[in-house]
């Protein structure tokens, strides 16, 4: 095994500089939380979710029931309608997310649009929502774009927000990935990876997930290797003046 308790093991279809591709492992490199909270008797505590308030007792509902905002004060004094003694503070276990209309009623059929806004908040485009589909483990492998970027020139050009470690799944893919890591290490560079047939599309790892540019870095240590897929969705640069 790669390491004890591998979590979030995925697969990725990746091609090398010669266009040879293979499905290999992709591992999360997030460090697990190491802290446990104990009560005063040394027992592990737990967390839970409780209801603080619900819509039937919020301002809009109270206003409608009282017949105007100016009449709410007296009803608050007379009957505490803002408090639901039965439910407030109740533990929530299996709740669901739903859409509600302006009247606070559940809506079962919705249409969704993406409103694309400029940095200043002005609308640039409006279009029906399109959910991005994952493209890192499809029949079309992630491709080396041929665009090598020296590490010393690229580390301060992009914000590398996430990474995945690429690992072999058998002897053949060990040779494949080790060779890739060795080549990249020798070049002291990161290779820009692209998705799609042209290899120029951003990477999407999960359905509806964030789109990233992928940069592959290789390190070796004797017969061992470390192949890292860096993910970035922004450049490291100052914001244009006036952007809010």
């Amino acid at each position: 095994m790669l390491r004890e308790g591998i979590e979030q093991m995925g697969t990725i279809n990746i091609a090398n500089d010669k266009g040879r591709d293979a499905v290999v492992g992709s591992v999360s490199v997030l460090k697990p939380v190491k802290v446990r909270w104990l009560d005063e008797q040394g027992r592990q505590i737990q967390s839970g979710r409780v209801m603080k308030a619900h819509q039937a007792h919020e301002l809009t509902a109270l206003e409608a029931a009282a017949g105007g905002r100016d009449k709410i004060a007296q009803t608050l004094i007379d009957a505490d309608p803002e408090i639901d003694m039965e439910n407030f503070g109740a533990m929530l276990k299996e709740s669901s997310r739903v859409y509600v209309n302006p009247e606070g009623k559940i809506v079962r059929k919705v249409r969704q649009f993406e409103v694309i806004r400029n940095p200043d908040g002005t609308e640039r485009e409006r279009r029906p929502r399109k959910i991005a589909q994952p493209n890192s483990d499809t029949e079309t492998p992630l491709k080396w774009t041929g665009k090598l970027m020296k590490k010393k020139e690229v580390y301060n050009k992009f914000v590398f927000a996430k990474k995945r470690q690429i690992v072999h799944v058998n002897g053949l893919t060990y040779d494949f990935l080790y060779g890739m890591a060795k080549d990249l290490e020798k070049s002291e560079s990161l290779m820009l990876l692209g998705a799609g047939a042209k290899g120029n599309q951003p990477l999407v790892l999960t359905r509806g997930g964030q789109q990233y540019r992928g940069f592959l870095e290789g390190r070796t240590q004797g017969e061992k290797y470390c192949l890292i897929l860096h993910l970035s969705n922004m450049e490291l640069k100052s914001a244009p003046k006036g952007a809010e």
Binding site: Q46, S47, K52, H54, I106
Partner: peptide
């Protein structure tokens, strides 16, 4: 919004708190 597990109560933004509990 969040529909509570009683199937009736609709909870808007800010209507849920995280709490710490003993065993």
């Amino acid at each position: 919004a969040t529909l509570a597990d009683d199937g009736r109560s609709l909870i808007g933004s800010g209507g849920i708190s995280l709490v710490t509990l003993s065993p």
